[in-house]
Nucleic acid binder design. Structure first.
Lengths: 322, 322
DNA sequence: TTAATCTATGGCATCGATTTCAGGTCAAGC
DNA sequence: GCTTGACCTGAAATCGATGCCATAGATTAA
């Protein structure tokens, strides 16, 4: 492959001069500039980025770490990659399957200078382990975390969840059942807080119904729909932690011949693509902008500048299930 | 950051010996081996992969180029990344949005040795341009292409489509309307071939109905459902190029109060996640294994070995829409 | 006893770029 | 006439690792 030295030889200058021309810094006479450019054109030159990265001590590459690749992650990834590309960075993907060892390999990639920074979608290892890698480069999280060196781009789920709850209330539902996700996540805690405050504000008994925890898949949702039919104290509405479980609920209910929202209403969360297909009421938020913010934070730290973050808002998408 | 030289100093050996120990080649006495290992432990050493890549002339990194992220691409990406990680490679993502310039940047990344190889999901540039980059490293395509230096991992869509057609026939449908995707793709051509042969085999008139072309989105599908109601020559079944359009068809039909499959049957293609939610009959094929094959081809070329490819099969998933 | 082979180690060139340093020319300013 | 500073250039060090080559002692074979 052709390198800077060959260009130098062909143009009759030193490698330093070639570098100066190609990077546009320092003084170079017009004449030599032209000759270098011509030579690099003729030789079909492309700088070896490994050498550049080595010398500069930076790769302009960011690692994106996700447990798997579902639609939410995909959206985040899409937004992140687009923002990064626009900023002249590329993105290397690490899929961990929530496996700690795999995840650790991604962290090691940062230590090995394979990437300049990491964006963690959701992580499996202890926060303290993650934090111990922060000295090798910026790390931001999507999931909400409380850690000094790990900023996160979470949105206040309290607000979004409250939006859903108030919507259900306004449509006349009073026996609202919560279908929570993983209780170890702060997001879930925020949602539980929202529900408590919601009940207090409207004089509802928050313990009247049994709620569900650790729910995340379509299958989980389907199971809940089946349980409903034999439940002694039936809720008249469900609010779910994500659209997967909500969709499972709606789809299974329809299969069972139940009417949604006649028998019970369902409100999802995330506004995934299939929500529209099922006419599922759900809560939307701009994942791609959030990913853009994640990138902005990272870039800000790498280049030591202050970049503005886009303010993000939840937004209720009302469809036929409420 | 600590490097090989510092370890050498601390262990009282030369950098060459350190390299030998860490890479496990050449002769090193047990004593020095121990000292090097201890020193590298104490200094929390991590090799700088940029230097390694520069020296070795290979990065063990593969670029994955996709126009955007729908669920199919997402599946392919997931399968590819997992296979690559298992093989000790990492994957850098390029999202092109079908923009030729962006796509070209991905090709350039290969030329600049940022990646060792490229996997193209779907590409926008001329095949000849893509081919001109093959000299910089292996390039495989997902989309079916005919090019000497660009192998692809396409499956014969003819078989899959025929599976759907025969299924519809066996369920008694005779007025089958094709909802084709982009006619510039060879996949679509194969499907058109299948339909012709299918008609010939069953003595059907392939020109009796009007078919649809360039259909790909949910909205397209919804539009087709609405057209059906006012169509003079109504088909009794639709077979779609992908689940998006099929889902749009089904969802809109249900909204219009039509019965599926009472008024018309629908068979999709791809078996995306939401197909189950809509109880959509569709054609499944193992995208993740296909992605694994793509990686196997790439790896085989990089390491100059012969890797076995998994045989792939279509598979009809019958649900409630046929 | 001598030649051949194995084991062990360090020196140094190398991968391909960037950047500092030092040296040089030339014109403007005092 | 001398200083100052802008302009221009190449040599060489550097980033961090790898691996060839030379050397040399210890064995083994002839």
């Amino acid at each position: 492959m052709t390198n800077i030295k060959e260009i130098a030889a062909r143009a009759g200058v030193s490698p330093s001069t070639v570098s100066r021309v190609l990077n546009g810094n320092g003084y170079v006479s017009e004449d030599k500039k032209r000759r270098v450019l011509a030579a690099s054109e003729e030789l079909d030159y492309a700088p070896n980025l490994n050498a550049v990265s080595l010398k500069r001590g930076a790769t302009r590459r960011i690692g994106l770490v996700a447990p798997m690749f579902d639609e939410s992650v995909q959206r985040f990834t899409g937004g992140f990659v687009r923002a990064a590309q626009a900023g002249g960075y590329s993105v290397t993907l690490f899929i961990t399957g929530m496996d700690r060892v795999r995840e650790r390999e991604a962290l090691e990639a940062l230590r090995h200078k394979q990437v300049d920074a990491l964006a963690l979608v959701i992580f499996a290892n202890d926060l303290s382990l993650i934090e111990s890698y922060a000295k090798y480069g910026p790390i931001v999280a999507w999931q909400r975390v409380v850690a000094e060196h790990i900023p996160s781009v979470f949105m206040n789920q309290y607000d979004g969840y409250m939006l859903g709850l108030e919507h259900l209330y306004s449509r006349g539902y009073r026996r609202i059942c919560n279908v929570y996700g993983s209780t170890s996540r702060l997001n879930t805690v925020s949602r539980m807080d929202a529900y408590r405050d919601f009940c207090a504000a409207h004089g509802l008994d928050e313990h009247e119904l049994e709620h569900f925890y650790e729910i995340s898949t379509i299958e989980d949702g389907e199971r809940i729909a089946r349980l409903w039919t034999e439940s002694p104290r039936r809720p008249d509405a469900f609010i779910a932690a994500n659209d997967y479980s909500a969709a499972g609920l709606v789809a299974e209910a329809r299969r069972l011949g139940l009417s949604v929202p006649g028998d019970f209403a369902v409100c999802g969360f995330d506004n995934l693509e299939f929500a529209r297909l099922l006419d599922l009421t759900t809560i939307h938020y701009p994942v791609d902008l959030q990913a853009g913010n994640a990138f902005a934070i990272i870039r800000g730290r790498i280049e030591d500048i202050e970049l503005p973050l886009r303010p993000l808002q939840f937004h209720l998408v009302q469809r036929a299930t409420t």
